[in-house]
């Protein structure tokens, strides 16, 4: 199996759904529409000629300043043909949403929950989209680029009054 075979077959069936095709360092990646994302994944999984039955990796990326801002990246592997294809789908604020791959690949469950937890991307059709790594009452999504890093300001003589004013100290 090589990139060209996969690309030709997908172009034939899903011409309208493929927004961009990229080959970088020998790896094929396709940017798809949300509908195309699930349809292509289903086709690649179920067609015996391809058999991409293994969803190897799924994660989100925050491209702050670009439209669409978020991108979900899924790497599908065919164990039979020893080949990997990367599917990408964009989603934008205020409610970044993409369709879930969990009904097709149960392994996407935790990975989509992780992307939801850390980036705030919602996956439509996910059976239990809750936070996974962070506590349930956490506010915000730390992997977003605009998430405050929360570092401690260092106190010097010129600014210590301002900093100490809102710091709890033990009173004698």
């Amino acid at each position: 199996m090589d990139n060209q075979t996969v690309l030709t077959a997908l172009r034939e069936k899903f011409a309208g759904e493929i927004l961009a095709v990229n080959e970088f360092r020998g790896d094929l990646s396709l940017t798809l529409t949300p509908q195309g994302y699930v349809a292509v994944a289903r086709f690649l999984r179920d067609d015996p000629a391809f058999a991409y039955t293994f969803l190897e990796n799924l994660c989100g990326v925050d491209y702050l300043g670009r439209t669409p801002r978020f991108e979900v990246v899924a790497h599908l592997t065919s164990m039979r043909h020893r080949h990997r294809v990367c599917l990408k789908v964009g989603c934008d604020e205020p409610e970044p949403t993409v369709p879930s791959l969990t009904p097709l690949f149960p392994t996407a469950n935790y990975q989509e929950r992780e992307a939801f937890d850390l980036l705030g991307i919602r996956f439509e059709g996910h059976p239990s989209l809750t936070r996974i790594l962070l506590p349930d009452d956490w506010v915000g999504h730390p992997l977003r680029k605009d998430h405050p890093l929360g570092d401690e300001e260092v106190a010097f003589t010129f600014n210590q009054d301002r900093i100490y004013a809102h710091k709890p100290f033990v009173k004698e």
């Binding site: 970088f24 790896d27 190897e56 990796n57 790497h75």
Partner: peptide, 16 residues
Amino acid sequence: DAYVSIESPRGILGCY
């Protein structure tokens, strides 16, 4: 972007 996976002692370790 680049994705690489290796066979770690625990399974497929991937890095994107």
